[in-house]
Amino acid sequence: MSHTPPVPIGNQSPYPLQEPPHIKRNTEVPNEIGQAKRSRWSFLPILTASISAAAAISAVAILLAPDRLFQKS
């Protein structure tokens, strides 16, 4: 038997029986846009490292020299 009997309307699955075809999208970025994004975000690691270094230096200075920072006049 190559013919499948019809399914009653109340007994049909709400989910599709076959997966829809996938759409291929172009994921390549043109050179001008890709380089602009790279150059724009290249400063972020440098900025993060400098802020972290400044915070670490400040913390060490406060821990090592509290008498100089909090002198009573």
Rank of each mutant, 00 (worst) to 15 (best):
M1C: 10
S2C: 10
S2P: 13
H3P: 01
H3E: 13
T4P: 00
T4S: 06
P5C: 03
P5V: 10
P6H: 05
V7D: 02
P8H: 10
P8L: 13
P8I: 00
I9L: 15
G10Q: 11
N11S: 15
N11K: 14
Q12P: 03
S13N: 15
S13M: 08
P14Y: 13
P14A: 12
P14N: 11
P14C: 11
Y15Q: 13
Y15K: 15
Y15V: 14
P16A: 14
Q18C: 10
Q18L: 14
Q18K: 12
Q18M: 11
E19A: 14
P20N: 03
P21M: 02
I23Q: 03
I23Y: 00
I23K: 05
K24E: 09
K24T: 09
K24L: 12
R25D: 03
R25Y: 12
N26L: 15
T27Q: 04
T27S: 06
T27D: 04
E28I: 06
E28H: 09
E28A: 13
E28D: 11
V29Q: 01
V29L: 04
N31G: 00
E32P: 00
I33F: 01
G34M: 08
Q35N: 14
Q35V: 07
Q35R: 11
A36R: 00
A36G: 07
A36F: 00
A36W: 00
A36Q: 00
K37G: 08
R38H: 01
S39R: 13
S39W: 02
S39P: 00
S39D: 08
S39H: 06
W41G: 10
W41Y: 14
W41Q: 10
S42V: 02
S42L: 02
S42H: 06
F43Y: 13
L44E: 04
L44A: 12
P45T: 12
P45M: 01
P45L: 01
P45Q: 03
I46L: 06
I46G: 07
L47N: 01
T48Y: 12
T48W: 14
A49N: 13
S50F: 11
I51W: 09
I51P: 00
I51V: 15
S52Y: 07
A53M: 11
A53H: 02
A54Q: 03
A55W: 09
A55K: 06
A55Q: 07
A56V: 12
A56H: 01
A56L: 14
A56I: 10
I57C: 06
I57F: 05
S58P: 00
S58D: 05
A59Y: 08
A59G: 07
V60G: 02
V60W: 07
A61R: 06
A61S: 09
I62E: 03
I62Y: 04
L63A: 12
L63T: 08
L63P: 00
L63W: 10
L64I: 02
L64E: 05
L64C: 13
A65P: 01
A65D: 10
A65K: 13
P66I: 06
P66C: 04
P66A: 06
P66H: 03
D67L: 13
D67A: 14
R68I: 15
R68W: 09
R68M: 10
L69T: 04
L69N: 08
F70I: 08
S73I: 04
